[in-house]
Nucleic acid binder design. Structure first.
Length: 399
DNA sequence: CTAAGACCTCC
DNA sequence: GAGGTCTTA
């Protein structure tokens, strides 16, 4: 049985890239709801599908480690000859108690060694850099946002390395059509079932099968709505099928990808012609797959953040998130953060997620300790009034 | 432009 | 109700 790779089981067949935690935090970046395709398969190890291949990623202080599994067809790149179909990490790995794995580095006889051609090696490194947009210097951006915005500065101390992914536009679009009236954990399950049912299989690891995202044509088939309703997609099943149908019927196959080269508002308007795609979903697709770094997806939580943390008056007295409020909140944050406003937004969005509240609480405690220390130092000097109680901001929680 | 209601399911 | 969208008034 093939297993998920673990760095502790031997770094030999892993590759790596220099990357600081200030530039990338896998847990936050992969878990903040911009992608629904990654799972933590070991402590700090994330396994998912990217670029038609299954990857496991993990990181140490200054290094991003990656491992790819062989899949049917993926070996064709080497010399046109198909290699093994099974996939497994190199070096058999024994499972000890819980997450602890016993290191064991023996060559296996039942399989050919994973041949890593330089071409594929380079290609995969490029795929990874592209997906995480590692050419964008996140620490520099954090510094700029923090200069203009004290609230951001405070949050950013804890939520470092929250980075926008550059996802496949088709996967991004159809995943986000699933997000309406929904929450992350359920969306994850839906996308998983979608891929399992309509996506090409890639490999199997520890009994879990990994599939690529379904191609557009597969989603456009008229049988898809009923199929997805059976999988618990509800009314979104029709949106998915109809949107796929509309794209296949009225555009050529590269249309969605071509929106990367189109200005933000134009690309957003184009997306909004698709059923199930409103301003929020269109902004998500623009930001997360179409290179529109200034796109700020506005949902009820982002609206709440604007009011609570920025005393933003936009839409005050408004009962619901109208298109106008959408646009005005977006403009508000673009004015505050500049051309990468969408990236900054995701840092605050991430910090508001319930699953990351523990992180925040420990940070608040540290702040309190620091503040008490400062206050008591002052008090000692002036030998005056006692230490004041540090203010703890009451912040609502998303999800 | 804004305000309701409906839409599927799951916790 | 949940990280909306569509339709109708």
């Amino acid at each position: 049985m093939s297993q998920h790779a673990l760095l502790s089981a031997g770094a030999k067949s892993w590759r790596s890239l220099a990357c600081l935690r200030t530039e990338l935090r896998l847990d936050l970046t992969l878990g903040c709801g911009q992608t629904f395709r990654w799972r933590e398969t070991g402590e700090g190890h994330w396994t998912g599908v990217m670029g038609g291949r299954v990857w496991t990623l993990t990181q140490t202080d200054d290094t991003l480690w990656y491992y790819t599994y062989s899949t049917p067809g993926s070996e064709g790149e080497m010399n046109g000859r198909k290699r093994r179909v099974g996939a497994r990490p190199h070096g058999p790995v024994k499972k000890a108690k819980g997450m602890i794995m016993v290191k064991e580095e023996e060559p296996t006889e039942d399989q050919e060694p994973k041949v890593m051609t330089p071409e594929r090696d380079i290609k995969e490194e490029e795929t990874l850099k592209d997906y995480f947009q590692l050419n964008v210097k996140l620490a520099d951006l954090y510094r700029e946002w923090g200069t203009a915005d004290q609230h951001f500065k405070r949050i950013a101390q804890t939520f470092t390395g929250v980075r926008m992914l550059r996802q496949d536009p088709t996967e991004c679009l159809f995943s986000f059509i699933c997000t309406s009236n929904n929450h992350i954990s359920r969306i994850q399950g839906m996308v998983e079932r979608l891929c399992h049912t309509l996506g090409p299989p890639l490999c199997q690891l520890d009994g879990t099968s990994y599939h690529d995202f379904p191609p557009l044509q597969a989603l456009a088939d008229s049988s898809v709505e009923a199929c997805l309703r059976n999988l618990g997609f509800g009314y979104r099943a029709r949106f998915l099928q109809q949107s796929a149908r509309q794209i296949v019927d009225t555009h050529d196959s590269r249309w969605l990808d071509s929106l990367r080269g189109v200005p933000y508002f134009q690309a957003r308007d184009a997306l909004r012609t698709l059923p199930g795609v409103g301003l929020k979903v269109a902004d998500c697709v623009c930001l997360m797959s179409l290179d529109k770094a200034c796109a700020v997806p506005v949902d009820t939580h982002v609206w709440q953040i604007a009011q609570r943390d920025y005393r933003c008056g936009v839409g005050k007295g408004q009962k619901s998130l109208t298109d106008k409020v959408h646009r005005d909140i977006g403009d508000f944050f673009r004015q505050l953060w500049g051309p990468y406003a969408g990236w900054a937004h995701s840092v605050l969005f991430c910090s508001d997620l319930k699953k990351f509240q523990k992180l925040k609480e420990t940070a608040v405690k540290k702040e309190e300790v620091a503040e008490v220390k400062i206050t008591s130092e002052k008090t000692a000097k002036k030998s005056g009034r006692g230490a004041s109680v540090p203010r703890v901001k009451r912040e609502a929680v998303a999800e």
